[in-house]
Design a binder for these strands. Structure first.
Lengths: 129, 129
DNA sequence: ATTTTAAGTACCCTTTTAGATACTACGGCA
DNA sequence: TGCCGTAGTATCTAAAAGGGTACTTAAAAT
């Protein structure tokens, strides 16, 4: 069993982490916390997609919400938006270099989450939103 | 520059990830998304703390909110709550084994977030909540 | 002349989350 | 006898996030 101390030493805690407003972890959480943002990044990690292609993959997201999330991800520099000046419009979304760098975090979250679910199945059901 | 394909191959994507409700990453996001939860876990990674000790470290959190977050973290199995039957009451909070396992994710988020902030300082300011 | 298509906006309403304030129980202490 | 400290509840209000429906634009197809 690992001691708190051991873990503590691998932890690169800094002053700014202790203030919620300047904490880099909290920032990342904010980057990812819009509804379906994780899934959008996950899909775009496979291939660039057009607006309606994404929409088909996320059938429970309204057009408005998808636009909102995409705009937010773009503003945060995680995805790019490429407009082809044609009619009807063609708009292509993909991960930026920065966006690709956040994928390993999602993978790690996936690893923990999958473990967690396995254990949860053995005991009580997990609260989901 | 890493290609999408390379990253894709390191990605252990599974069916369940493609449905928002059953996605382990989304689960982890939910585990961490209550306000100040990250910070609470971060503090408890150092040492166990009593309710009012935590409160002093989080001066902008009301008693109610702190209780709420602690209850939620406890229900999710990330922290434990140890009640000493004395008066005035003494209640001690600490990370469970599971809670300690989520810390590396926070560290990784910290790493990305810190990088991100460095770059953001050079260009436009980041949207924070 | 009307319909279709892609990629949106605009406007309004509901739900969720968070914050403010006040109150409680219990025993020890002055 | 009444106040202090710990660890809370309870209640109400405000702000943020999310959802539903309708409208837009411009060219090409029917």
């Amino acid at each position: 069993m690992t001691s708190n101390k051991e873990i503590h030493e691998t932890c690169f805690m800094k002053e700014k982490c202790l203030k919620y407003e300047t904490c880099p972890m909290v920032l990342v959480q904010n980057l990812l916390s819009g509804k379906r943002k994780i899934l959008i990044l996950w899909y775009l990690n496979y291939e660039t997609l057009r607006f309606n292609e994404l929409r088909k993959k996320l059938p429970d997201v309204t057009q408005k919400m998808l636009t909102q999330q995409l705009r937010s991800l773009e503003a945060d520099g995680l995805i790019y938006r490429n407009i082809y000046p044609v009619t009807p419009p063609k708009v292509e979304y993909g991960l930026t270099e920065l966006g690709r760098k956040i994928i390993p975090i999602l993978e790690m979250m996936h690893g923990f989450g999958a473990d967690y679910l396995e254990k949860a199945e053995l005991s009580s059901p997990v609260q989901e939103k």
